[in-house]
Simulated assay, not measured.
Amino acid sequence: MKILVPDVPFDLDFPALLPDAGASFAPGGPDVVATYAMNDPIPEEHTDAEVLVTWSSPPKIVADAARRLPRLRWVQTLSAGPDVALGAGFGPDVVISSGQSLHDDTVTEHALALVLASVRRLDTSLAAQREHRWAKEIAFAQADPVTGREYTLDDARVTIWGFGSIALRLAPLLTALGAQVTGVASRAGERSGYPVVDAAGLDALLGETDLLISLLPAVPATQHILDDRLLRLLPPSARFVNVGRGATVDEAALVEALRSGRLAGAALDVMETEPLPADSPLWDAPNLILTPHVAGGRPRRAARFLADQLTTWRAAGDLRNVAPR
């Protein structure tokens, strides 16, 4: 069996972690592990691969692999979301699994950083710094009983849309800062002590939300799901943070909400088109913080995860994070 792995700037020495390191790690070996340049098409000599590991390859490169690797049986992406692989055109018999959990810690950290930067108005302070101006208006607004509560997470009503493994790490940190956290997921109920509503309860929840955090994946059902109608349900003092996928947001509607003052602020790590075009209205939207899709950084403990996945594959067991097709 031939396994293709990208030439990434982090450790992917997974064969050394397998119980039978140095031997065939799948029935019918011997096995071959070959590397490929993740920004280039798969070399012709490797189009006989049966397993493809991807990380941060452009969509056109993954789509090229879908066309040119006829023997492929399994695609393992190290990204938290499998959207690029799912949209590449792999045959229905090809298993696609994601790297969910490999980015939980870093995405959680970045989400919290964006939340605090927006709530504490660091963008305003940084803009004033560049102007050599002392932004005293921030202090006045915090001291005002009417607006003061908008500058703190203490007693803030936070909604996390997409209540999976990252949300379960982020929610306790927000709770520690005094926030009241509610999740939104496909099924209502309770997860790790947090109330969770489903789609039927979303509209009412947004009307009582001070801070909306999106961790949604990019799938057909979530395309532009945060649209003008839902943005209008949020209070004018609310803020929005997106560390999920950019395609889940109607960016034109978001810009209009910020320009009109119907939304107090937002912070985005992900955009629908990346890199963000120079003429995008997002660059100049008021009260908006942008970071260049850096929340995940790189997959953590990827070699161990991949070794476990390959061991499971060899034993014909149930792989983790298999994406519905």
Score class of each variant (00 low, 15 high):
Asn287Thr: 08
Asp269Gln: 10
Arg245Asn: 07
Phe240Val: 14
Gly246Gln: 05
Gly261Tyr: 06
Asp284His: 14
Met271Val: 15
Pro292Met: 10
Ser280Arg: 00
Ala285Thr: 11
Ala264Lys: 04
Pro281Ala: 01
Ala252Lys: 12
Val249Asp: 05
Pro292Thr: 12
Asn242Ile: 09
Thr291Ala: 13
Ala278Trp: 04
Gly261Pro: 10
Pro236Thr: 07
Ala257Ile: 07
Pro277Asn: 05
Gly261Thr: 12
Pro281Gln: 02
Leu263Tyr: 03
Ala252Leu: 12
Asp269Cys: 11
Thr273Gln: 14
Glu274Met: 11
Ser237Asn: 06
Leu258Arg: 00
Gly297Met: 11
Arg239Asn: 01
Thr248Gln: 04
Asp269Pro: 08
Ser237His: 14
His293Ser: 08
Leu234Val: 11
Gly297Val: 09
Asn242Leu: 11
Ala295His: 08
Ala267Ser: 13
Val249Ala: 03
His293Met: 11
Arg239Trp: 03
Val249Gly: 01
Arg298Val: 14
Met271Cys: 15
Ala253Ser: 13
Ser260Thr: 15
Ala278Gln: 14
Leu254His: 03
Pro286Gly: 05
Ser237Thr: 15
Arg245Glu: 07
Thr291Leu: 11
Leu263Asn: 05
Glu272Gly: 09
Glu272Val: 11
Gly296Gln: 08
Pro281Gly: 00
Gly296Glu: 07
Ala253Glu: 02
Ala238Ile: 02
Val270Asp: 05
Glu251His: 04
Val270Gly: 09
Ala264Gln: 08
Thr291Ser: 14
Pro281Ser: 01
Asp250Arg: 02
Ala247Leu: 12
Glu251Phe: 00
Leu276Ala: 01
Met271Phe: 15
Ala257Lys: 01
Gly246Glu: 04
Val255Leu: 05
Thr248Met: 06
Ala267Gly: 14
Phe240Cys: 06
Val294Arg: 13
Asp284Pro: 05
Arg239Ser: 10
Ala267Thr: 12
Gly265His: 01
Pro277Lys: 04
Val241Met: 06
Trp283Ala: 02
Leu290Tyr: 00
Arg262Ile: 12
Arg239Cys: 05
Pro236Tyr: 02
Leu234Tyr: 10
Leu290Asn: 03
Ala238Gln: 02
Ala247Gln: 14
Pro235Leu: 09
Pro236Lys: 04
